[in-house]
Structure formats: C-alpha cells, structure tokens
Amino acid sequence: MILSIGKGDQTAYCTLVKRHLSINLGFATKLLGNTADAEEVMQEAFTRVWKYSNLWDTSRNAKFTTWFYRVVTNLCHDVSRKRKPQAKIEVLEAMASDEVAADNIIAVKQRSQQVKDGLNEIPHRQRTAIILCYFQGLSNREAAEVMEVSLSAVESYLVRGRRNLAEVLEEDKNNLLKDIG
C-alpha cells in the first residue's frame, strides 16, 4: 500500500489513514497527555507519509506500522521537549461530592491525572516503553524495533518505568491522604 501511495494513489492514502489514525492518535495522546498536541503530531506524521512514501525502500523489509510508530514517537518527543512544564491540575475539591456515580467519575479522572503527572515525571524512554507495550499492545520485540533499542533495553525500561511510576503514584497518594486527614 505504501508503494501505491508513493506513486500518488490517493485512495490508498485514505485507506491507510483510516487504518492507522485512531490507534496512533491514542498513542500520541497518551504519550503527550494532550489531545491538541497529539492532533498536530498526527497531521505532521501523515504529511511525512505522503511526502516521503515514494522513497520507501522495499529492500529493508521494514513494516510500515513500526516505522510510523517511530515517526509519531519522535514527533511527540520533539513536542514534549519544546513544551513548557504544565501546572498540575488539582481536582481534589471535587472529591467532596456525595453521589457515588460522581465519585467514581471523579476517582477515574483523579487517577488518570495522577498517571499523567507520573508519566511526565519518568524518563521519556520508560514512558514510551510502557505506552507501547501496555496500551498499544505491542510485544517487547516490536517495541524494541520502534524505539530502535535492544530487546533487553526495552525490558529494562518497562521494569524501571513501572517501578518509578508506582513510586510516584504512591507518593501522590500519601500526599493526598495527608491533605484529607
């Protein structure tokens, strides 16, 4: 399909976009914690697909999915380097609600925000490894190909990343309990 796109086939391009947009938009959003930035990244990524698809080297036997994840990862990394550190959003005040359903929604939001903050605190490569393997469902080997590192390096990133994230979340939880108590 990428070869057809390289020859200027717009129908093939549309099919490719429909196949890869949602998955990679979710990936970029989780990596950046921000939908607006993720949408910009997707635009740039698909612009690159269109522009450079005619330079695709079939002799390298590369998978488009892997290559595209790599493009998105690198673009997200560029965006997060340029971005100013974001202020933590406090939603603690809302915890006082009596309604159970509202409590659940708030709890999910609260957890999500905590994970977002936690992911921002751990190194970029650990974050990428966790998101690729846990959310995108890639195997460790596929994640290693996307990140252009060895399999053992990805395994190390995953273990250290999860440990660091757990520590950050635990710390947040303790602070929250102190604030409430």
Partner: peptide, 10 residues
C-alpha cells in the same frame, strides 16, 4: 483509567 481518559476518536 489513564487509557480510558486518553483514547480520543479522530
């Protein structure tokens, strides 16, 4: 929870 909150549709 994070995955649910950050899986937007295009």
């Amino acid at each position: 929870a994070y995955g649910k909150a950050n899986s937007p549709e295009a």
